[in-house]
Design a protein around this nucleic acid. Structure first.
Lengths: 227, 227
DNA sequence: TTCCTCTTTTGACTTAAATCAAAGAAATTT
DNA sequence: AAATTTCTTTGATTTAAGTCAAAAGAGGAA
């Protein structure tokens, strides 16, 4: 219940409305690697994550994967499918065991319709998403892998700084092959690209820990400059 | 005023609310090639198109362009920027002379807050956008140019069919170099790819008219199969 | 029409990234 | 701890698509 309050989608709702969400929600346990829904599957509702981590992704016929989004508690996912009356636009898979709350679409839409705060939350959340996707499109179409990787490391660094940790030493929040898929490439290319940055003395890598030695070069790379 | 009623974002609004939108809107003439706003520029509102065609796009440092969206009357654009309190996430350029209505953000947000129908419209519009972007990400990351082109031609064909025109002969709705940019490539590659489809006897091209000779192959291509 | 500009196409070449294959390193399971 | 599985790295090669340069074609203005 406390977690629900922290979900951005439900932030600022009256206790009474939260209760209602809680009431219509159906708890669902998921185990690592479990497919929660598939691309094209009929969308009957969305999910709120109470614990665990979920990967939303697309797959090509040849099996290459593109991660669209990684979500963890207390976020929601697949809310956008609600108003597309139709199908989920991607796969969702649990990256760890976890606990979800399934919110049936029909009932939630009614809640939205009579709750302005909720619709604003929804609009904000969709807008943010859209912005993230715009950035991803830009990167996929206009930037090369080294640039996307540099950007990713800088983002991690910024996040570390906000959390009061050392911004010059970050910990990758996903496995390297998952990161590759998030950056729109494959693990081999990711590995080689990381290697290049090491060779150039820009970073130092120990397992999942990356030490940033030359932040300036990373910034140049991220902005698309070749170095 | 009639046009406003047809704008999906404003569809189904009460006359009174439409009046209010009309009242806060500031008319703006644009000429072909005019930049309406730039990537990163402070977003003070969004636009409704009364006439003309607008291109929303990103540019790489090397000058490669990726079109995100082409909008024409009576659609709105940059509505998503409203709730990102900050900056426009792309460039907007007029592809033809036209007439816009600029809607200041502050005032429109107030309208939304007290008008459930308007928030639902907004949510629907953002959701559709998100779906389109998801598809674009998938194509950029997982499909090759010929596949994206095939998909595009089939989309045009579907649209022609819906409009009661011949679905086997479509007219490109943009110049070829703009189409290239929409498909995430450059004009040279676009031209060669179109050439390949011609050579294989899948299509026939005369200026902007494309005759579909082998729809099945196009469908295979679009779904990612190599032919 | 002719001129000029802009767009599209073609050719030769380069390059970033994917593929395939295999070895090495980590992590899990037994 | 050994065994098995999964993840990561490295090497050799291929390939799709980008770059640069130039010609061909189309459209608009005078």
């Amino acid at each position: 219940m406390n977690l629900l309050k922290q979900c951005p989608l439900l932030a600022g709702l009256k206790e009474e409305d939260l209760q209602r969400v809680r009431a219509i929600g159906i708890p669902k346990k998921v185990v690592k690697k479990e497919i929660i829904f598939s691309d094209g599957e009929e969308a009957k509702g969305f999910y709120i994550i109470l614990s665990g981590k979920i990967k939303l992704y697309k797959i090509s016929p040849e099996g290459k994967e593109q991660i669209l989004h990684i979500v963890s508690a207390p976020d929601a996912f697949a809310e956008a499918a609600l108003f597309l009356e139709g199908s989920y636009p991607a796969f969702a898979e649990a990256l760890e065991d976890g606990q979800l709350l399934f919110i049936p679409g029909r009932e939630f839409v009614q809640l939205i319709e009579r709750n302005p705060k909720l619709s604003i939350n929804m609009i904000v959340s969709l807008s943010q998403f859209l912005k993230k996707f715009t950035a991803l499109i830009e990167e996929l179409s206009l930037k090369e892998v080294s640039s996307r990787l540099a950007k990713y490391l800088l983002d991690l660094s910024l996040k570390a700084e906000r959390d009061g940790r050392n911004p010059m030493e970050v910990e990758l929040d996903l496995s390297k092959s998952q990161l590759a898929s998030k950056l729109g490439t494959i693990s081999e290319t990711f590995s080689r690209t990381l290697g290049k940055l090491k060779t150039k003395g820009i970073i130092e890598v120990k397992k999942r820990r990356v030490k940033i030695l030359d932040r300036r070069s990373l910034e140049d790379l991220a902005s698309g400059l070749k170095i």
